[in-house]
């Protein structure tokens, strides 16, 4: 009788231990998918993303770099490397640089989410630029979509105004094409469609460094972009430069070979010159008129934007 109760007790203890282990595996988030699901469910709202180690920062002052990988799409090694690249870019551009990878916009619009997140992390009205990569299955036609870029603060606006579309194109090009089924969740990259987020973020850091520079490097960037975006204009510039150069050099060389014809007028004895006959016979006269047509159109005033928030959308199919 005693032996039967011991077996029952042992079995009960074993079952409890197994249950406890299973629970530990489930709740500690060793599985990224578990973490992602947890985020989707919003179960850990009371624990900040910072505390969960999902947000990493580097730098100080107005040159901070930030990576917020809520979906664990980047490995630790990639995060470290990319954070360093973003920090370098932040110093070069003298703005805060951040990237957030998430699938959950918490009920906000793209713009609302990224603006709020940027303000929360860098402070409102700070010179900063934030890239959001949306890792989602929800989009009806594509597995992930854009890249919402917010630049906050006058300094950032000046630097990156007009460059957003170009930057987004570069970033989306680096994200690559979906590997296999674009709707399928990729266990390794933790992204839908298997896009290369690390390459995308790396390109983003490069773009910030490229377009955020000043002085001579900015000049070089301006020139190289002109060649890419307006190739015909570039050829026109070469042709016009050549023509002007030709005219200048030719004019200069002509000064070395000039032969001036000398008139014999200087040998006329003016005191003995006399007009022996002068006839001015009137033939006819006429008057013509020309009426100018009035043209309309005055000056159009252009509105200028001040500082503040600007967002751009790009999409990748």
């Amino acid at each position: 009788m005693v032996k039967h109760s011991t077996y029952k007790l042992t079995a009960l203890i074993m079952a409890l231990i197994t249950l406890a282990a299973a629970a530990a595996v489930f709740f500690t988030g060793t599985s990224a998918r578990a973490g992602a699901l947890e985020h989707i469910a919003g179960a850990d709202k009371n624990v900040s993303a910072n505390d969960r180690g999902l947000i990493r920062k580097a730098g100080s002052g107005t040159q901070c770099a930030l990576i917020a990988d809520f979906d664990n799409c980047l490995t630790d090694a990639e995060e470290t490397e990319l954070l360093s690249a973003l920090e370098t870019a932040a110093k070069k551009a003298n703005v805060n640089v951040g990237v957030v990878i998430t699938h959950d916009l918490e009920g906000k619009s793209d713009e609302g989410f990224v603006r709020g997140f940027s303000d929360e992390q860098f402070g409102a009205n700070s010179a900063s630029i934030m890239l959001m990569l949306l890792n989602t299955y929800d989009a009806p036609e594509y597995t992930y979509y854009t890249d919402c870029l917010d630049s906050n603060g006058t300094t950032a606006n000046k630097k990156f105004d007009g460059k957003r579309d170009r930057m987004l194109k570069r970033i989306t090009d680096k994200l690559g094409e979906p590997k296999g089924n674009k709707y399928a969740y990729n266990e390794i990259t933790h992204s839908y469609g298997g896009y290369d987020f690390a390459a995308g973020v790396k390109e983003y850091a490069k773009c910030v460094k490229r377009y955020g520079g000043s002085g001579f490097s900015k000049v070089l960037v301006m020139i190289s972009d002109l060649v890419v975006t307006h190739p015909m204009g570039f050829l026109v510039i070469i042709a016009v430069s050549f023509l002007i150069t030709f005219a200048i050099v030719r004019g200069k060389v002509r000064g070395y070979k000039k032969k001036a014809p000398i008139s014999a007028s200087s040998y006329i004895d003016r005191s003995s010159t006399k007009v022996t006959r002068s006839i001015d016979q009137f033939v006819r006269e006429y008057t013509t008129s020309h009426t100018h047509s009035s043209s309309g159109g005055g000056h159009g005033g252009g509105g200028g934007g001040g500082g503040g928030h600007h967002t751009s959308h790009g999409s990748h199919r």
Partner: peptide, 24 residues
């Protein structure tokens, strides 16, 4: 106003002159 007027007079011109050139 909006109109430009051009008045042209045409003449038949004759000139005769005597000149002395010295040591060309």
């Amino acid at each position: 106003g909006n109109t430009t007027y051009t008045h042209t007079k045409i003449y038949h011109v004759e000139r005769d002159a005597d000149m002395v050139f010295v040591r060309v």
